[in-house]
Amino acid sequence: MKAIVAGTVIAEAEQQDLISIEGNRYFPPAAIRQGSLRPSTTPYTCPWKGAAQYYDVATDDGQAHDAAWCYPHPHRSALDRVGKDFSGYVAFDPRQADIVG
Rank of each mutant, 00 (worst) to 15 (best):
A91K: 00
I32M: 08
G62I: 07
T45H: 05
C46L: 04
E12W: 03
Y54A: 02
P43S: 12
R33P: 01
D56A: 04
D93I: 00
R95E: 14
P43W: 02
Y89V: 04
Y44M: 09
S40D: 07
A58N: 08
G23I: 02
R76A: 15
Y26P: 00
A11H: 03
G88E: 05
D85C: 07
P94L: 13
K84A: 15
A68K: 03
P72D: 10
G35K: 01
L37W: 04
A3W: 06
T42F: 12
D80H: 10
A64V: 14
Q34C: 03
L79M: 14
S40K: 01
D60T: 14
L37K: 01
G83E: 11
T8G: 07
A6Y: 01
P47T: 10
A58R: 13
G83V: 13
P72V: 12
I99K: 01
W69Q: 05
Q15M: 06
D17W: 01
L37Q: 02
A67W: 03
D56Q: 02
P43M: 03
G62T: 10
R95W: 04
A3H: 03
F27G: 09
D85M: 06
S40G: 05
F86L: 05
R76D: 15
A13T: 09
G50P: 03
A91Y: 00
V82A: 09
C70A: 14
M1Q: 09
Q96A: 15
P72N: 11
K2F: 08
Y71Q: 10
S36R: 12
Y71C: 10
A97E: 10
D80R: 13
P74I: 03
T8E: 07
V100K: 12
Y44V: 00
P72R: 08
T45C: 07
A52K: 00
A97I: 11
G35H: 06
I19V: 15
Y89S: 02
V90K: 02
A6G: 11
G83R: 08
Q34M: 05
A97C: 15
C70F: 01
P72C: 12
P28R: 03
P39N: 05
Q34V: 11
V90F: 05
A64N: 02
N24D: 12
V9A: 11
F92Q: 04
Y26L: 01
Y54G: 01
T8H: 06
P28E: 11
A78W: 04
T59I: 09
A6R: 13
A30T: 10
V90M: 07
R81T: 14
I32D: 06
P47E: 13
A13F: 08
P72Q: 10
K2T: 07
Y71A: 11
E12P: 04
G62D: 08
A30M: 00
E22Y: 02
V57S: 04
G50D: 07
Y55G: 04
G83S: 10
R76T: 14
K2V: 09
I99G: 02
T8L: 09
